[in-house]
Design a protein around this nucleic acid. Structure first.
Lengths: 114, 114
DNA sequence: CAAGGAACCTTGCATTGCAAGGCTAATCCG
DNA sequence: CGGATTAGCCTTGCAATGCAAGGTTCCTTG
């Protein structure tokens, strides 16, 4: 059984930009990203999702990384938003609001046919 | 180049339920579905998307179909919402609003870290 | 009959979320 | 000391689904 049935497909293509938006506030490491998203309720993700995603964003140049030691336990790789990442979030943000308004409209009245 | 870059991934898993919601008003055929979605601006789809999708919904029992002749040209297959389709839309609708609120929140203030 | 158009469908591909499992380093406990 | 535990990171293989491109069928028009 998937992590959450219906919403799985909803997450596609949104998580990446959610993570970038979260990095606007402060650098985060993988476990922290998962934790914050879980606390949002509808965006549950697993490690198998987040680490490949973070790697992808790094190779696309949207984030820069840095290892930091911890007082106890394994070191953490922190992700920080790059300039091109900031630009990507801004563009996606506009796209998101347009898109979600269209969908809202359809669920409100069936699309106002014709 | 895809039909619309950034939004392509957003569409995943949403289009199916948008179409079901549209069928609540009246039965539609494939070309009509595409036309209505295009008129919404942010939900551009192509035939290669809609026909496999309609077939899938039929085999899942969410829609029932019926051929109708046209005054001129090829006959059209009309899709009508089934009872289980109605139920599916209602469930997804709730899921959608929860999900979009979470995403909105993240883009509003970066996720209200911590 | 040939040409054209509308509607439908299929094939192959790319993206991306996920489950499962593995690796490493530090700590805890006997 | 040495095994078990924990936290953090990553990889592999799979499944869902949107898309482009191309093909088929049926009807009309010239």
């Amino acid at each position: 059984m998937p992590i959450d049935g219906l919403a799985t497909q909803l997450r596609k293509g949104v998580i990446e930009y959610c993570v970038l938006a979260m990095l606007k506030e402060a650098p985060l490491y993988g476990g922290e990203v998962i934790e914050i998203l879980r606390s949002k309720g509808q965006i549950l993700i697993s490690e198998g999702t987040i680490y490949p995603l973070l790697s992808r964003m790094r190779s696309e140049g949207f984030v820069e990384t840095e290892w930091r030691d911890t007082p106890a336990g394994a070191p953490r790789r922190y992700y920080r938003l790059s300039r091109s990442g900031q630009k990507a979030v801004a563009e996606f943000r506009d796209e998101w609001f347009r898109f979600r308004n269209s969908v809202d409209e359809i669920f409100r009245d069936g699309g106002g046919q014709r």
